Amino acid sequence: MKRSSYRRYLVPGVAALALTLSACGAGNEDSGSDADVPAGTEELSGTLNGAGASSQESVQNVWRANFQGSAPDVTVNYDPVGSGGGREQFIEGGVAFAGSDAYLDDDEGQLTDATERCSGTSPIEIPAYVAPIAIAYNLEGVDDLQLSATTISGIFNNEITTWNDPAIAADNPDAELPSDTINPVYRGDASGTSENFTEYLAAVGEWPHEPSDEWPATGEAATGTSGVIEVVGGTAGSIGYADGAQVEEAGLSTVSVAVGDEFVAPTPEAAGAILTASTPVEGRDEVDLAVDIDHTTTEAGVYPIVLASYLIACQTYEDQEQADLVKGYLSYILSEDGQEAGANDAGAAPLPEDLRSQAADIVDAITVG
C-alpha cells in the first residue's frame, strides 16, 4: 500500500503551495485575468518561496499564470529541486512550503522534524496534484506497448534486457519487437516519483528491493522529471518513468499497464479513480490528508501507478503577509477553477469533490501565530 487516498475530516489548519517561475509557463500568462480566484486576491502583495517536486512544475506554471494574472503584486517562487530537496528545505526553514510526491515519513524522522520546525504543531499535508506516473519508452516501430507488473519489474531490475524478450512478447503478441538492448532510465536524485513507482513494483511485481525515493537498481541516471524525459526521448531503446502530463507534453509513447484482465493507459481520469480505492494513513493528525494508495486494485479503468503530490506547510505563520499569500494561493488551487485549469492545461486529475472540500476547509483556517 502506498501514499494516496484521503482522510475524512473537516478541520482547521494551514497549507502551502508550490509555484514555479519557469519560462515554460510564460505562454499561459494571458489567461490569468480570467481566473475565478478567491475574493481579496487582487489586494495581495509580496513574495512566497517554496521548493520541491519537479513533477509539479507543469501544473504550477498553469496555476501561477492564472493566480498572478489576478494578483499582479504577488511573486510566488518554486524551485523544482525534487521532493527530497523540498522536504529538507522546508524542515530547515529555508522555504515557507514544500511540494512533495510522498508524504512525510515518520520512520525517517521527517514528520517529527517538520513538527519541530512548525513550533510544535503538526504540519499540514494536502494532496494538490494527482497524476499518473507514465512509463515512457522510445522504440521505433512499436507504438502501442502493454506490460504486466512482473515484466515491468524485470525490465527495471535489469533481468529483462532485450526488447524481444519472451516476457515482453507474451504481453504484446501482435507487436514486431526488435532485438535491441533495453536502456532503463531512472531518477538519479531523491524523488517521490521513484518512491511511488517502487511502491507499485513492490506491491504487485517481483521486485526484490525496498521502496525508496533513492533508486535501488542500475541503469542510466537522469536528474529531475525533465532529465528522464530528455534521456528517454533522445536515446533509442530507452524506457523510464515520469509524470504523465510532462511525458504527454513531450510527445513520448507510453505503456499501458495490466490491471486485472485489461491493460490501462496512463490518463488523468484513470489515475484519479484510484483515490476512491485507497485509504487514509493511520495515526495522522486531523490536518494531515496523507493517504495510502492501493496499487493492487483490479477495478476496471483504474491506472495503478500514480503520484499524489502534496503541499506541505505549517498550521500558522509568524508573518501576516506569508499567511495571507499561502491562504490566497492555495484557495485558488483548490477552487473549482484551479482544479479545472490543472486538468485542462496540465493533465492533472481533479480531486474528488469531498477531498477538495476538506482541503479547502483546512486552508480557510490559516492563521498567524
Rank of each mutant, 00 (worst) to 15 (best):
I135R: 03
I135Q: 00
I135G: 00
I135P: 00
I135E: 02
A136P: 04
Y137H: 07
N138E: 11
N138W: 04
L139V: 04
E140S: 14
E140I: 14
E140G: 14
G141I: 10
G141K: 05
G141Y: 12
D144F: 05
D144H: 14
L145P: 03
Q146N: 11
L147G: 04
L147S: 06
L147D: 04
A149W: 14
A149I: 15
A149G: 15
T150Y: 06
T150C: 10
T150D: 15
T151S: 02
T151V: 12
T151K: 13
I152W: 00
I152C: 04
S153P: 13
G154D: 05
I155G: 04
I155C: 00
I155Q: 01
I155N: 02
N157I: 10
N157P: 01
N157Y: 15
N157L: 15
N158P: 02
E159Q: 14
E159C: 05
E159V: 13
T161Q: 03
T162L: 02
T162Q: 00
T162Y: 02
T162P: 01
W163C: 01
N164T: 02
I168P: 01
I168Q: 03
A169R: 03
A169D: 05
A170P: 09
D171W: 00
D171E: 06
N172H: 00
N172E: 04
N172I: 03
N172A: 04
P173M: 07
P173A: 12
P173E: 08
P173T: 10
D174L: 13
A175S: 15
A175C: 06
A175E: 14
E176C: 00
E176T: 13
E176H: 02
E176N: 10
P178C: 08
P178G: 10
P178N: 05
S179W: 04
S179D: 09
D180E: 13
D180Q: 15
T181V: 15
I182V: 06
I182A: 00
V185Q: 06
R187W: 14
R187I: 12
G188W: 11
G188I: 11
G188P: 12
D189T: 10
D189A: 14
D189Q: 13
D189K: 11
A190G: 15
A190Q: 14
S191C: 14
S191Q: 07
S191M: 12
G192D: 09
S194R: 05
S194L: 08
E195P: 07
E195T: 07
N196V: 08
F197S: 03
F197A: 05
T198N: 09
E199F: 11
E199T: 06
E199S: 09
E199Q: 13
E199D: 07
A202P: 06
A202Y: 10
A202W: 07
G205L: 03
G205D: 03
G205P: 04
E206W: 04
E206M: 07
E206L: 03
E206F: 06
W207E: 00
W207R: 08
P208V: 08
P208F: 10
P208L: 10
H209M: 09
H209C: 05
H209W: 09
E210V: 13
P211I: 05
P211H: 09
D213G: 11
D213R: 12
E214F: 08
E214M: 12
W215H: 11
W215A: 01
W215P: 07
W215K: 06
P216H: 12
P216R: 09
P216Y: 11
A217Y: 05
